[in-house]
Design a protein around this nucleic acid. Structure first.
Lengths: 126, 126
DNA sequence: CTAAACGTTGACATCAACGACAAGGTCAAG
DNA sequence: CTTGACCTTGTCGTTGATGTCAACGTTTAG
């Protein structure tokens, strides 16, 4: 299939696909006229990439997953390198959550000071 | 005081101060030689801006606070416009936290699938 | 034959808050 | 007079994942 069809099927823009290629995440055979030609495996790759981007991974983070799929594994996350990324990302997410909770407390405190009774309750806060 | 001293006292770069001025957050009298001249009030403004930036506010968010201080209030957060920003930011932060929690769950789930027993516990999780 | 619908590469624009220069003016001390 | 520490404006670079053109070649349906 050509780039337009892959884009439609994967739900991404052709621009994105060319960018992924430029970043070395996907590759494409070239037809005689220079057009990119993709197979079903490429659809899986792009789908994996999109899924990872959707949960906040960067393209760089996605590399091991793509490599894992290319190596023949049915899941991109089943290689040690991918697992390492998973763990790093989990740690990053936890860090961000901690930062945001601290910020929320700080901002809520300031708001309370400026306008007692203005603070909205958060789910789970007494 | 001139820009260098204000920068030192506020703990920011002169570049940042000029940027704040360009964005209309602070203003400066000009000496005969064209140098910017600041007063103690400006130090308060910059300190407020930095404090807000520190908890994730944008310069645009900081505008009402600066205006509030300029209007003579001792606290930048004590004007209704500032309170509105506080509330909007709180809502934004809560949204981000929710997103991150969902992501964390998603990533942790994938990791568990790929590598049972690899997931680290989070504080507060059973 | 031609227009529409594809494909190609290349390059600039976006968002925020500056950092890092360039190229110059000003001013005090030695 | 000169060095050096200030100050000025202006412009480009940073970061990530594209959007959006430009300018052009290809293919396909009518």
């Amino acid at each position: 299939m050509r780039i337009g069809e892959l884009a439609r099927r994967a739900g991404v823009s052709t621009r994105a696909l060319r960018y992924y290629e430029q970043q070395g995440l996907i590759t494409a055979r070239r037809a005689a006229n220079g057009y990119r030609e993709y197979g079903e495996a490429d659809l899986k790759l792009v789908t994996e990439i999109r899924s990872l981007l959707g949960v906040g991974f960067t393209l760089d983070d996605a590399r091991p997953f793509v490599a894992c799929l290319r190596a023949g594994h049915e899941s991109g996350g089943s290689c040690p390198e991918s697992v390492a990324v998973y763990q790093r990302k989990l740690a990053e997410i936890d860090d961000e959550i901690r930062t945001l909770l601290a910020r929320r407390a700080e901002v809520a405190g300031q708001l309370t000071e400026a306008c007692p009774g203005c603070v909205l309750r958060k789910q789970g806060e007494s």
